[in-house]
Design a protein around this nucleic acid. Sequence first.
DNA 1: CTTGGCACTCGGGAACACAGAGTGCTAGAC
DNA 2: GTCTAGCACTCTGTGTTCCCGAGTGCCAAG
Lengths: 337, 337
Amino acid sequence: MLDDRKLAVLRAIVEDYVSTNEPVGSKALAERHNLKVSPATVRNDMAALEEEGYIAQPHTSAGRVPTDKGYRLFVDRLSQIKPLSGAERRAIETFLAGAVDLDDVVTRTVRLLAQLTRQVAVVQYPTLTRSTVRHVELVPLNDRRVMLVLITNTGRVEQRVIELPEVVEDTRIAHLRAVLNSCLDGCGLSNVPELVADLPERLPVEDRPAVATILSVLLETLVERHDEKIVFAGAANLAGADFSTGLRDVLEALEEQVVLMRLLGETTSDTPSALTVRIGSENPYLRGTSVVATGYGSGDNQLARLGVLGPTRMDYPVTMGAVRAVARYVSQILAAS
Amino acid sequence: MLDDRKLAVLRAIVEDYVSTNEPVGSKALAERHNLKVSPATVRNDMAALEEEGYIAQPHTSAGRVPTDKGYRLFVDRLSQIKPLSGAERRAIETFLAGAVDLDDVVTRTVRLLAQLTRQVAVVQYPTLTRSTVRHVELVPLNDRRVMLVLITNTGRVEQRVIELPEVVEDTRIAHLRAVLNSCLDGCGLSNVPELVADLPERLPVEDRPAVATILSVLLETLVERHDEKIVFAGAANLAGADFSTGLRDVLEALEEQVVLMRLLGETTSDTPSALTVRIGSENPYLRGTSVVATGYGSGDNQLARLGVLGPTRMDYPVTMGAVRAVARYVSQILAAS
DNA sequence: CTTGGCACTCGGGAACACAGAGTGCTAGAC
DNA sequence: GTCTAGCACTCTGTGTTCCCGAGTGCCAAG
């Protein structure tokens, strides 16, 4: 049905349209890409491609434009991920190397990705669920209040102020801290609930109300942050592009954690580091945009996802290369710290 | 020079232009606001106002539009800050009350403000400099690494991983922590440098390299975060508005911490809780936008600033009311915690 | 299967006219 | 002196028309 030349024509159409942002006609195609055939032949192929739904024309007698299906075929079979230049790689390294803490890593990553792709970059904070407890700290603030600080091996720090149901002496707080740490240190966060389940029973009865309160806050912290924090950067890059759905909708979506999350998608368990490309109508919300995303994290321990969002008319090979490279570098950084 | 009626005309022009987004003519003015004079008279006044530079016409024979100078006069002398409705106040309260930590307070505040004003909201994180140390924590990660956690009375938590120059036993770390806390607890952050200055001398000589490293990171943390974190929300509200400078520039500025900082401005020391309004060309960057900002914080202890950014053509009384109200509520919340 | 030729179709830009809103000015009314 | 009414003038924005050109689909010939 689609012989090699037709595929070549489709590839040429996508490339030209992406670079010029104008419907591409048969004549220009035959000239620019040396297809060795005449415009008329190209037209025939185009008719076939249109028949199959890979391209469309905005109006009769205009050039052709790739459809979502056309981009899909292009991404799957007609393009190769374009690796970054050496200069770009070095830039990434130096830019990420200066990060001082997790917040900083994420912030730098998202900015870097936005700048590199000239799109909107989205980065999900490393998820807590797969990380392990590095330290639990209880800081007495006054005699009815303590601050709970939870530090994970990914460098993440969560804190909560807890109102105690009764006055508890500092020494007892200190004891509880020691117990908690000996019990939880190095354990996966998902194991925490079962590990602390019998804790109240192992402590003096008079401490139990306070312990119960503290534990409930601790568990709450774990659950609450399960739906993760997510940040974006590069909104300015949207200014030029035109979206079928209107710029406003895109900006609104970017500020909705839930929507962003859905757009980034799930890491498929079998191939965690694979690039996910969702084109136009393949996306849950925001049908007019494309999302290139991937999981990141050290080795087989996938932490979270990152990616970029842009118009359907996007340079997929370049974008995919950038996303993949940044994911790799940030994974390295996180593994090292 | 400018009698009462001319001022009334100016006020009417501003109000009409803000609500309709169209140059306002003499006839419509005389009708809609019962000025009790004829359009011709209004025209004379308009000519005078234009002479003085308070209004301008986009082209000959179009209606008048306020200039920056006109808005300025309007804000300073012709308008009253509009208080929020009861429903709005209750919404603020319930929305802010649910915050679990400082991050959450800031995030909720910025979203609330964006929604309330239908502009872009900007909130600066409470500054460290005026807050006090509540707790310093040193967590050994392995024998060459510790994590420094600094908790302030505003609920802010800073953490850093420190590479030690040599292996230090946990007990010595614990001792150092105790020393640090007894030394710094409750002290203002700005006093920390002098307080820790002679610390190395008071400790065993073999600990000094490690102590020096830790202290240098501690001081660095204080200084680094002096230029503060700043967040925004409501970029989607820009989609409708038109900026002389182009949407792209505004979006770019929003992602530049430094620029945002400059836009929010400094809290003037004499009247810390006063509203600052910068109109159009009065702004350092982004000449085409207006910024309404104010300091917030508990009582005389100003912590940071918050505000909104929008087109010059903005409903100043309403915006100012919202900014003031939100600043008050968030100050309360922070004072209580 | 490919190619050249040809008639057809639209979109977009230029030229143009026109209605309507708004102005400035002047002369008269209070 | 200040306000008002009338009038001529000046624009912008919109709608219309027209035309060019790029691009297509189809057909017949190589």
